[in-house]
């Protein structure tokens, strides 16, 4: 995935069963953002892989004051890349294990 300066990781182990999963997001490189992020905190949230979109969550983070509105796309892309990896793993790895 492209280095966006915003890191997104699983905040819990993925057993491939729940559609909702906990993710943790933090800024690794503030210079890649257009605006100043709120602080250096890691933001933990749940994301529903079936019902929600990364764009929705990124918009809510902007509205909650974590990021400048000009950074909504880079935050959404960071979440989208991680979600794509989680879904890739679920489709290819979990059927083999089970």
């Amino acid at each position: 995935a492209e280095d966006t300066g915003v890191r997104v990781e699983l905040a819990e182990e993925d057993h491939g069963r729940k559609s909702s999963i906990a993710l943790r997001l933090w800024v690794e490189d503030p210079k890649k953002l257009k605006g100043k992020p709120k602080d250096n905190g890691a933001i933990e949230f749940t994301f529903d892989l079936e019902k929600e979109t990364p764009d929705d969550v990124a918009q809510e983070m902007v509205e909650s004051g974590f990021f400048h509105e000009n950074d909504v796309k880079i935050v959404a892309k960071s979440i989208r890349d991680r979600v794509a990896l989680i879904q890739w793993r679920r489709e290819r790895i979990w059927p083999i294990i089970q």
């Binding site: 933090w26 690794e28 949230f45 969550v57 509205e63």
Partner: peptide
């Protein structure tokens, strides 16, 4: 505690905690 919780009007809960120094890229 150093945890902060922010609830968006749509209902999503954001829990903010400090990022360990080891996880931050060197500036």
């Amino acid at each position: 505690s150093s945890l902060t919780q922010v609830v968006h009007s749509a209902g999503r809960r954001f829990i903010v905690s400090p990022v360990p120094e080891s996880r931050l890229r060197e500036q």
